[in-house]
Amino acid sequence: MALNTPQITPTKKITVRAIGEELPRGDYQRCPQCDMLFSLPEINSHQSAYCPRCQAKIRDGRDWSLTRLAAMAFTMLLLMPFAWGEPLLHIWLLGIRIDANVMQGIWQMTKQGDAITGSMVFFCVIGAPLILVTSIAYLWFGNRLGMNLRPVLLMLERLKEWVMLDIYLVGIGVASIKVQDYAHIQAGVGLFSFVALVILTTVTLSHLNVEELWERFYPQRPATRRDEKLRVCLGCHFTGYPDQRGRCPRCHIPLRLRRRHSLQKCWAALLASIVLLLPANLLPISIIYLNGGRQEDTILSGIMSLASSNIAVAGIVFIASILVPFTKVIVMFTLLLSIHFKCQQGLRTRILLLRMVTWIGRWSMLDLFVISLTMSLINRDQILAFTMGPAAFYFGAAVILTILAVEWLDSRLLWDAHESGNARFDD
């Protein structure tokens, strides 16, 4: 018995066209964080690309023209004298008006014999932002004059995390709450300039795509075929072959399989920071003279006294001054041990922890910024005066060393310790 099946006739004509040209192939790229070699397709503007294995951002879609970056830099340069030299806060102490600005706080630190601690604050609040705007201006002028731009481009990517104007702005709020127990506070004209400078700096850093600047100024022929001998440069993120001198053909720094002496430098910085954190938390970090009496505060006791007036601000200072430094030390110690013992479990967790400490590390400088600003506000000789204690130097040095330890660690070593050939990683 035959089955009668109805015929289905399409209502619209289906047209099949042959592909007349070869589909576009992607360029081969190595991930600078996990060293995976993959094919990167062509990316349009405002599109980002991520590593298929570790999800690290390979290409950032946010990109401004150099002219727009230069305009932002010149605007920031105009704001800087007002943000640093004009009063941020006014207080009335014992019937006398006192003005506080950024430069005055750094000068008070240096004047009291601790120039190293003052230079830490100076670099993060004044030096690094000033280098940022002058570097962008150098790129703008240098591109037109045919100057060598490689050193500036190499420095810009590392400079971003040292620009800490946003953290200093939080420190202004913390210092205001600490001082309000002794005097009446009012915002100064410099505060508005400083807030504007923070906003412009944040926007500029978020749109400063150094890798795209490398592509514009020093374009290189990408690798179009897969080759395990391809290496990625950690300076400019170019994937290719080393030249005859073993250097990256684009930025001219040595092109090595792994960062040289990464573990040794990381261990040295980490152990030194552990040693410095002990006096930083045991010795007094601030000293207040009130009517001839002397009151010393460690980091913890200062947080407890701050909690009596504002528990939320005390929580912020606790996280930045105690929780973050010790968390960074514990995480980095764990990561280094996992590399030495070739741990194969929990790779995803370790990668996330490394990215976390990379982002939060700079916030530990908050305590030094609060001390710097408070020193310029309260300084009335023996009637009422505020000065920093010996722990300030140890704390600042420990924070900087932990930042350097994270920067010096080559994250690809975590993958080397893991089993080879993993296309995915999980716990």
Score class of each variant (00 low, 15 high):
H252Q: 07
R221S: 13
E228I: 11
A128R: 00
L230R: 13
M304P: 07
H340E: 10
D99M: 09
I383K: 02
M103I: 04
G95Y: 05
L353W: 14
W84D: 06
D114P: 02
R294A: 06
S45Y: 15
D427A: 04
A391K: 00
L413A: 08
C124P: 09
L353G: 14
I319M: 14
L191M: 15
H261L: 10
L169Q: 07
A223M: 14
A398K: 10
L278Q: 14
F141T: 03
Y138A: 08
L354P: 12
D227I: 15
I106R: 08
L132Y: 05
R225P: 14
M375Q: 12
K229R: 13
G292W: 07
M109V: 06
A385Q: 06
N281H: 04
S376R: 08
V406C: 08
D27L: 07
P41C: 08
Q7T: 04
D427V: 12
M109R: 02
F217A: 15
L77R: 01
G302D: 00
W214S: 15
L337D: 03
I19M: 09
C343L: 14
R250S: 13
F194Y: 12
R97V: 02
V179R: 00
N422C: 09
I116Y: 11
T298C: 15
T117A: 11
D427K: 14
Q264K: 04
C266E: 04
N291V: 15
W64G: 06
S376I: 10
R68F: 09
I136A: 06
I303G: 09
A56W: 07
I322F: 13
L230A: 14
A385H: 03
V189P: 06
R150Q: 04
T349V: 14
I339W: 10
L413K: 12
I311K: 14
F341W: 10
T134I: 12
A71C: 06
I371D: 00
P249F: 10
D227L: 14
L79Y: 15
F141K: 01
L384S: 02
A73R: 01
T402G: 01
I167H: 02
D381A: 10
P41F: 05
V324A: 08
S193P: 04
I19T: 06
E419F: 09
C124Q: 03
L153R: 01
A71K: 02
M155A: 05
A70K: 11
L40S: 08
L132M: 07
R225D: 15
Q7Y: 05
L149W: 02
H340F: 10
L197E: 07
D63A: 14
L401M: 12
L154K: 01
S301I: 04
F341G: 11
R362P: 05
A183N: 15
W64D: 03
D35E: 05
M304D: 11
Q295F: 13
N281L: 04
R412D: 00
N379G: 01
L40M: 08
M76S: 04
C266W: 01
L263K: 10
L79E: 03
L156K: 06
I303V: 15
M147W: 12
L263A: 09
P24L: 08
G361E: 05
A196S: 13
P249G: 10
R260E: 09
Y182C: 06
N310Q: 15
V406L: 10
N44R: 05
H90W: 02
D181A: 02
I403D: 01
I19G: 09
G315Y: 15
D60L: 06
L159P: 01
S39E: 05
E21W: 05
I285F: 00
T349R: 13
I303W: 10
I96A: 04
Q104N: 05
S420N: 07
T358C: 12
V170D: 02
L368Y: 03
I116W: 02
F123C: 01
L282P: 02
G95P: 01
I98A: 02
V275I: 14
F369E: 03
R62G: 12
E419W: 10
P52A: 05
C251V: 00
A391M: 01
L78N: 05
G26C: 07
P81N: 08
E86Q: 03
L270N: 09
T134E: 06
P81W: 05
L89E: 07
Y182F: 04
A137C: 09
Q29N: 10
S48T: 08
E211L: 15
V152P: 05
L306G: 00
F122S: 04
D416T: 10
T134G: 12
N422S: 08
I322G: 12
A115Q: 11
G235T: 04
S286H: 00
C248N: 00
I285T: 03
L352G: 12
M36N: 07
A398Y: 05
L414D: 08
N209Q: 05
P254I: 08
L77T: 11
V203H: 08
W64P: 10
I14A: 09
M36F: 05
A223D: 14
L377D: 00
A385M: 04
Y168G: 07
R412V: 00
L368S: 06
L300P: 03
E161G: 14
A312E: 15
E21V: 06
L78V: 04
L323W: 06
Q29C: 08
M72V: 06
